[in-house]
């Protein structure tokens, strides 16, 4: 494609990685002390959604594939882990693993179909497939339809860590988030990540160099799906429920919004975007009602027209840093 790709330009410092590491230390420090200042439930919600957005960004920001159905991975994994913890009585760690495995499997199937087309078709195919998963979750007996799976036990992690203690629960969710974040960071800065970026910039060229673009795209898709599943599964355990909200199309749209607002193709952008959007819903939702949709739509329009690099992308561009 000859058009510029939807990412921040590479700055001279792009490969030093020092700024990114400093930012990581600051982010981790802030998140460690945050529960003493901010309502932990909100923080855990935001962390799970932020991991979800980072997983989504791995695909759109670094492979140039815009998925409009990512909620299917978040939602399916949250149902599976909720079911595993409640009905099968599994250890929370195993329940989360079951959720991740289910979304990775779904990622293999849907990814193999979706990467057969590019660009806008990719977006439409992922949207259609996620609608299919939505109807499946609406009608399958184990998801309990409109009721969802309620009062999921938080349980004892590895038999000795009591997740029903709110403080321990928070640090557990934080650990999961940081793990997922580092996996993505490592992927982007690996030779594998470089090939993904090469495919994003010029797929025919990458193919002519001998890279099997489809295999790389599928691998990135499955990794993104699995990490989105990790976010969904963790969310089901801490929030103690799984419901249709997480598998609905509006969730797929919201993750696009968060990533665009924070900055597509930046490492910290999706985290910033997720915290802003979740905060908006949590604290303004009750006053705004349906206006939330209007505001979200307006943010899309403003971002696309005025600052396509997103908040973090613009800041990084201003200071000529890579974040």
């Amino acid at each position: 494609m000859s058009e510029p790709s939807p990412t921040a330009p590479i700055s001279p410092h792009a490969h030093s990685g020092r700024d990114e590491k400093v930012a990581f230390v600051i982010m981790t420090a802030l998140l460690l002390v945050a529960p003493f200042v901010i309502y932990p439930f909100f923080l855990m919600q935001a962390l799970c959604i932020a991991l979800f957005a980072c997983a989504f960004n791995l695909l759109v920001g670094y492979v140039g594939l815009l998925s409009f159905g990512h909620a299917m991975f978040l939602g399916l994994a949250s149902y599976v882990s909720a079911h595993a913890a409640k009905v099968w009585g599994l250890d929370p760690a195993l329940a989360i693993l079951a959720g991740v495995a289910s979304s990775a499997l779904l990622g293999i199937v849907t990814g193999a179909l979706a990467i057969r087309r590019q660009g806008i078709y990719f977006a439409m195919i992922t949207l259609a497939l996620s609608q299919m998963i939505y109807f499946f979750c609406l009608e399958a007996p184990f998801t309990h339809g409109e009721d969802g799976i309620q009062s999921v036990p938080q349980g004892m992690l590895l038999h000795f860590i009591d997740l029903s203690n709110q403080t321990i629960l928070y640090y557990f969710v934080l650990a999961v988030f940081l793990f997922g974040f580092l996996v993505i960071y490592r992927t982007i800065n690996s030779p594998f990540g470089d090939i993904l970026k090469a495919i994003r910039e010029n797929e025919p060229r990458a193919v002519s160099l001998g890279y099997r673009a489809d295999q790389y795209k599928l691998a990135a898709f499955v990794l993104s799906a699995a990490l989105a599943g990790l976010a969904g599964a963790t969310k089901a355990i801490f929030a103690q429920n799984a419901s249709l909200t997480d598998v609905q199309f509006s969730m797929s749209g919201e993750v696009v919004l968060m990533t665009l607002l924070g900055g597509m193709g930046t490492i910290y952008g999706p985290v910033v975007g997720a915290f802003i959007v979740v905060a908006m819903q949590q604290y303004l939702g009750q006053y705004l009602g349906e206006w939330v949709t209007v505001i979200q739509g307006s943010i899309f329009v403003v971002c696309v027209l005025l600052f396509r690099r997103g908040i973090v992308g613009e800041i990084a561009g201003f200071f000529k840093r890579s974040l």
Binding site: M1, L66, V256
Partner: peptide
Amino acid sequence: DPLYSLLLTFG
């Protein structure tokens, strides 16, 4: 990139 017009119309 056509993805931007897709995002705009979605908004």
